[in-house]
Design a binder for these strands. Structure first.
Lengths: 197, 197, 197, 197
DNA sequence: GATGAATGAGCTTTCATTCAT
DNA sequence: AATGAATGAAAGCTCATTCAT
């Protein structure tokens, strides 16, 4: 009799909203749009998320957690830092191809609708699961003398800005090659930039 | 008797809109907001720009041209590629501090409101003055054997993604130091990533 | 406890809009006008009709159907064609006195706001229930040799143009007598014009 | 040095407005539209007509006068009433083909935008040059015993409603034949309806 | 006479959110 | 939990008309 649990309903909304927000943008996507995609009434939507903004914030935490977990998996492997860089780039690009809504949500919704996240996600609050894991990565690399000891944000901005930039170009259909194709050179560039001197 | 010319009026709108869009976002900013900031009636606004979307596109071209000109100035100087990198980073960070609305517009409005720019700014159409100049920079660097000969987008994504990422962190007030402070390490990182091997 | 059904709401709008459009014209009548007359919020209006134009088209079909049904009732009676003419004229004038909004909508909204009906009501699309019935009337009259066999539009234009013209004069308060008063002479004129020779 | 006289300017406006109003309707046509078509500034337009409504009324008088003159020419000819009917129908249809803006203005602007003409054109005030001439026509026909002595409006409504109806069908591109083609049968129908019995 | 920038009220339409059922 | 009709504020945009030049 497989009842749909509250948890499943919530996941359904998350999944639908993620797709719509990342495709059409936060303001273009309406609550009726989302409700329709889940197959649920508008009124009922509000039993799961008390506002559009709250939904956006939960989505952000959801993605950040997911990304963080993926990076932790890589961090925990017994491979060199250079190999880790390659793995993170691969994972990120893979996600951008397989589940583009996640990365696109980051780039298009989070990075640009400040007003939506200003209350409750100040600083890196909603994004910390992912940022923390990147910190671990750098610290490990520096500890093992594979990476140059530098300010975290200089390194973080390079890594994530670079990947974000590439995915943006990919999303705009500007890249002449598939994302896959750039993995090597990009990992190499990142490594060259960060390695100990 | 210092009449306000049509050109000046248009510039007034551009300047006001740039500020508002970059601060509050495209959808939160209303035409009445802009008109009020310029000190002009709503109706009159439409004598200068036929729609909100058109304004957004003209703004993009305006910024791209401005950025492109600044980069050309650097490109034309008789300095090493490594120094050019430093100059571009400086110029970019300087702009982010002095005229934050320009860079923020790029990051927050252009990069995320696809639907606004999809008609008329396909590909890199409205952004070409700036992109072209970055191409020149890379080509020159490769020609003089200072830079590693690689795919343009790999290099472009690194450079602009990195700078964009830093400015984003700066805008979010996450950076513990002023942007200025990062110029050296970031230029170095970029140079290390791109230099000939 | 006598809830208002969706159907009743829609009919309420139709009825209010019909009155307002026919009295004040399509462009002078605003959606707030209509909503207020139905006792409903502006927003809610759009749950029933997706645009002002759509409403206008549905209204036209509504009237055309209503008129068509009335003519069919007359067509099916076992009376002479001359009597049918009298009955149609009576019915039309009666309607113009009792439910003037219907005829006036035809004359004032449909006949003159081409741009509103150009998409979706091309030719006689939205008006066919009524036109079809008039065709039946003529065909029957010709078949029984009571009417002269002539081009349909020559006959249709006479009949409807004449009636429309009279109702227009009536609406302009130009007629010295009530519409009622003209029934005989007009029916006679029409019959004389169309009867077999 | 052929200066453009005030009169010529006014005629230019009349001609342009007539075309625009009849094609697009009164409310869709804007004063800037008209000014542009005449090649004149918006501000200057108001030196010739003090408002859009005034223009509409002057247009109506202009057309009514023109139509009246054409009918007088026919009335004054030494031909039978039946021939006069044919001549009037011909003239009217000819005008509808050659200068459609005039007839269309009558049908689409005057007949349906009551609010525009309600002040200043009450009753048949602005249309009297034309109506008067039609009255003469009927009176003459009755006096010579060619027409049945009946109420003026019964006859007028038939004549003008019929012609208007046909031109409407023509304008809607519903008629399978050119207007020309219907002249005979329509004149005959009108004569049959009105002739003395 | 001529210009056209300027005004501002008002229009159609949208949408997050509520709440009676 | 679930429904979806209802609200109403606010958005983008238009246009007749004015008036300083």
């Amino acid at each position: 009799m497989a009842r749909i649990t509250k948890e499943e309903r919530k996941n359904g909304i998350i999944s639908a909203a993620l797709k719509l927000f990342s495709e059409k943008g936060f303001y273009i996507t309406t609550i009726p749009d989302i409700a329709e995609k889940v197959g649920m009434s508008v009124g009922n939507f509000y039993n799961y998320f008390t506002s559009k903004d709250i939904l956006a914030k939960e989505l952000l935490i959801y993605i950040s957690t997911y990304l963080g977990e993926n990076i932790r998996d890589i961090n925990e492997r017994d491979i060199s830092t250079q190999e880790k860089i390659y793995e993170i780039v691969s994972m990120y690009f893979n996600m951008a191809e397989e589940k583009p809504e996640m990365i696109e949500y980051f780039l298009r919704v989070y990075l640009s609708n400040r007003e939506v996240f200003s209350e409750g996600c100040e600083g890196m609050l909603c994004v910390s699961p992912f940022v923390t894991e990147m910190m671990m990565f750098f610290d490990d690399g520096v500890a093992s003398s594979e990476l140059h000891d530098q300010d975290f944000f200089s390194a973080f901005g390079l890594f994530m800005g670079y990947l974000g930039g590439m995915v943006f170009l990919f999303g705009e259909k500007i890249l002449p090659q598939p994302l896959e194709w750039y993995k090597e050179s990009i990992s190499q560039n990142i490594y060259n930039a960060l390695k100990s001197r």
